[in-house]
């Protein structure tokens, strides 16, 4: 029997790592969503384990792979990916497949949030939060811990609230002191949680969405979209219906898988990667006073690639240094 040709998309975010396997009709064969835990290589290995398990027995062959997210270059090198693309493009491509008429994509992830404006199936504008992580999943997570409510149940608390409290959403530190104050005043937890959800939305719209023309249909994605409270706040504040997909959290991975499938090159992919030992070493270049911090990736002790250099000498020096290190250790 002929094998079904499939594409793997991996989205390595700061908080969570996602992967999907799709075929050329965009049918999803396997998907996985796990925490990155600040160790992208380990996370991807676990992720590939999950995917392999799900694909067992199915007659599938992966012919192309793509990576996106903040660790895309590192993981792209390790997986020998066909395509390495930024998450904004990946999200837009993924969403367009499910909602071809989408005009606004709101995305709130763990560390960053973005807005993508589309017109007639083409990205025409985008914005990403610049310097601060306020108004992202990390903020919600921190507050959830303080209230000792599991972040997964946050949304349910929020929709039970009748009158959400007002909360400063500008800065995580201010919001936190507001939260403590309101809690000590005796406000019910439901109202506080609903207030937090509102403050995230206000922060997002004031920072990322400032000056952008948000029009229907609006799709809300990213990990935070699983929080029904935030979604309801968006609906109320924007006055527009919000679409949330079941696979909203996987959209970046779907998008990059589609892009990998569309690229004409085929690169064989094997799950053996999860048994290969990849290590990263940080070194300081020392070539000039700038002292670029270089990150070298080694596959079974062999130099693969390096990043962080601001001039072409960086890679050459990194190679040399790695060679010296390996001969020394022998």
């Amino acid at each position: 029997m002929k094998k079904i040709k499939c594409f793997l998309g991996v989205d390595i975010g700061s908080i969570s790592t996602k992967a999907v396997v799709i075929d050329k009709n965009r049918k999803i064969y396997a998907s996985s969503y796990i925490w990155t835990e600040a160790n992208p290589i380990q996370a991807v290995k676990r992720l590939l384990g999950n995917i392999e398990e799900q694909l067992k027995g199915k007659n599938i062959e992966i012919i192309a792979s793509g990576t996106t997210g903040s660790a895309r270059e590192l993981i792209g090198t390790i997986l020998n990916a066909t395509i390495i693309k930024n998450e904004i493009t990946a999200h837009a491509i993924g969403t367009l497949h499910y909602h071809s008429d989408v005009r606004t994509i709101l995305e709130i992830g763990g560390q960053d949030s973005k807005i993508i404006i589309l017109d007639d199936g083409v990205v025409v504008d985008y914005a990403m939060n610049t310097l601060c992580a306020a108004g992202t999943g990390a903020f919600l997570q921190a507050q959830a811990r303080r209230l000792s409510i599991p972040v997964e149940e946050f949304g349910e608390y929020a929709i039970r609230s009748q009158s959400p409290v007002k909360m400063a959403g500008r800065c995580t530190v201010f919001a936190e002191s507001d939260l403590v104050h309101k809690a000590q005043m005796g406000y019910p937890r439901e109202d506080i949680v609903a207030g937090l959800c509102n403050s995230i939305v206000h922060n997002y719209l004031n920072n990322v969405g400032k000056g952008k023309n948000i029009s229907s249909p609006v799709v809300f994605q990213g990990g935070v979209s699983k929080n029904i409270g935030v979604a309801k706040s968006f609906e109320k504040i924007l006055g527009l219906p919000i679409h949330i997909d079941d696979i909203g959290h996987l959209m970046g991975a779907v998008g990059i898988a589609i892009l990998a499938g569309e690229s004409d090159t085929e690169k064989p992919f094997s799950f053996d990667i999860k048994d290969i030992n990849f290590t990263t070493t940080g070194i300081e270049c020392g070539g000039c006073a700038n002292n670029c911090e270089l990150i070298c990736v080694l596959r079974e002790g062999k130099f693969m690639d390096a990043w962080g250099n601001r001039c072409p000498n960086g890679i050459v020096r990194a190679k040399q240094r790695m060679k010296e290190l390996s001969t020394k250790s022998k």
Binding site: S70, K85, N86, E87, I88, V123, V124, D125, Y126, M128
Partner: peptide, 12 residues
């Protein structure tokens, strides 16, 4: 961060 945004800008 700058690189990601520039790449996305170019794609757009």
């Amino acid at each position: 961060g700058v690189k990601t945004r520039l790449e996305a800008f170019y794609d757009m």
